[in-house]
Amino acid sequence: MNWRSIWAIVRKDLKEVRQNKAAWVPAIAVPLIFAILMPVLFIVLPQIIPIEDVQRELGDVADLLTKLPPTMGALFDGLGVEQMFILYMTGFLLAPLFLIMPLMFSSVVGADSFVGERERKTLEALLYTPATDMELFLGKVLAAVIPAISLSWLTYLVYIIVVNVASFGLFGRIWFPLPTWWPMMFWLTPAFALLGISATVLISSRVKTFMEAYQLSASLVVLVLAMVIGQVTGVLFLGVGTVLLTGSLIWIVDAILIYVGIRNFKRSMLITKL
């Protein structure tokens, strides 16, 4: 395995994506909303609207709080109304939404590098190099996964800072991230990043344009929305155990998709689609 070639592909793909504003502008806008706008809104809101309104809002979710697993419910013990609201919104409700990021980042870069390369008619020259099919595949997957995970982690870091800073006046301590967030960041997020790229690899063999590939792989967001709905309705709460289990399932799906992707990623198959 020639890792120099693999890293050259990674660097080249990242440079290309950086030049493609249509690819990265939406990818930057969403984290800004998630990491700054939404937490500020949820933290500032209960401090400026009347306490009765917050209590009424919280009353609606009181039922949900009773459904929380005991370990998670304990987090709310002894908190004031505003604190409970902030903890629920920023610590629980927004959590699954963050999984959109690794999916989105890896889909954008993946669609640009796998389908975009064909669309821009640059793939043929790449196939005439001595790089093996596996080296080309790994280079392209890493080019999508590395920035997806890095950008997601950066967004988490900004979110952690924003939440703690904005709520410090109310909590008087650094209380975030909650225990659930650790496996979410380091177990579930990489799994989702790989899911995004492995789905894109499969989709890319069946579509002709970057936009088609991007839109199809973006439909994976439905998975995240299902988790959000599960969280809101109380059907599924992302506790540590749930996150670890979900992550394990996603990793298995990743392994299957990557296996199929490698089997499909043959020069001879790619060249006939040019």
Partner: peptide, 9 residues
């Protein structure tokens, strides 16, 4: 047949 160059680079 086409130059197949990375035009953004």
């Amino acid at each position: 047949e086409t130059p197949a160059l990375y035009e953004r680079l």
